[in-house]
């Protein structure tokens, strides 16, 4: 469903010079699978997801979604993905219903399909009590739900969650995770980026630990634990990052050489 090969993205930074935000990253995600991208802030998670959602172009390497290349067929890719970012992307001066409807129309859904789809979404997400509330007046939880409704309106086979629980209280976060789980059960192909270990342990079928643009380890959680003889996820994570930073100490002045 999603295939990422040797994906690299560099940009020019005032302080550090040329920086590789992504450094030859490769992974695959299958339908009905939740793939976790686990990494600290600034590891390159968002850059990777933005390339997958076609808003950034890779410097080199390829990424395909449902067989369509993100560089050569961006429109086809966009039709097949739902993207939810941590800053919910809610219009202040639009109601929840209007916004989901607007995006449904942008995706070209026929009007009757759209209306029934919206009713269904608002029912399952329990959004009917704030369907006519303006974005500016919504609570964070409402915004998150509205954002999910927007991302799901065209029923995409691939869904990308970029730190969806960031800044949410425990109750709302739990609901969001439940929604992600139910989407998986519907057979969606899901990428889930986070820096919270608990979420990964709970949700993800496979994970990739990403740091400074490079994937340090990839596999199912038990596999990784066995491989590195570290039963605790948190310790595993810190070990990997520490080891990587030690190895790359000499070239700390700016650019991290290829590690994959």
């Amino acid at each position: 469903m999603i295939s990422v090969q040797q994906l690299t993205k560099g940009f020019d930074d005032l302080r550090r010079g040329w920086v590789a935000a992504l450094d030859h990253v490769s992974f695959d995600v299958q339908p009905g699978e939740i793939f976790g991208l686990l990494g600290p802030n600034g590891a390159g998670k968002t850059t990777c997801l933005r390339i997958l959602s076609t808003v950034l172009r890779p410097s080199s390497g390829t990424a395909t979604v449902s067989g369509f290349d993100v560089v050569t067929h961006p429109t086809e890719v966009r039709k097949r993905i739902g993207f939810m970012s941590n800053n919910t992307g809610i219009y202040d001066r639009m109601t929840a219903w209007e916004m989901a409807e607007y995006y449904g129309r942008l995706y070209g859904l026929p009007e009757d399909v759209l209306q029934s789809r919206l009713e269904q979404l608002f029912d399952t997400l329990q959004m009917n009590d704030f369907r006519d509330t303006l974005g500016a007046k919504m609570s964070t939880g409402m915004k998150q739900k509205a954002s999910i409704a927007r991302a799901m309106v065209h029923d995409p086979p691939v869904i990308i969650f970029d730190e969806p629980t960031c800044g949410l209280d425990v109750l709302v976060a739990r609901k969001v995770l439940a929604i992600v789980q139910s989407l998986k059960d519907q057979g969606k192909c899901i990428i889930f980026s986070t820096h919270i270990m608990r979420e990964v342990e709970k949700l993800c079928d496979r994970i990739a630990i990403i740091h400074k643009g490079a994937i340090l380890a990839i596999g199912t959680l038990p596999e990784l634990q066995e491989q590195h003889q570290q039963p605790d996820t948190e310790e595993l994570f810190f070990d990997l990052i520490e080891r990587y930073d030690q190895q790359n100490q000499p070239s700390a002045a700016g650019f991290a050489p290829v590690a994959g």
Partner: peptide, 9 residues
């Protein structure tokens, strides 16, 4: 909201 708009078709 820019990013979400750019991701739509």
């Amino acid at each position: 909201t820019m990013e979400t708009l750019l991701i739509c078709p």
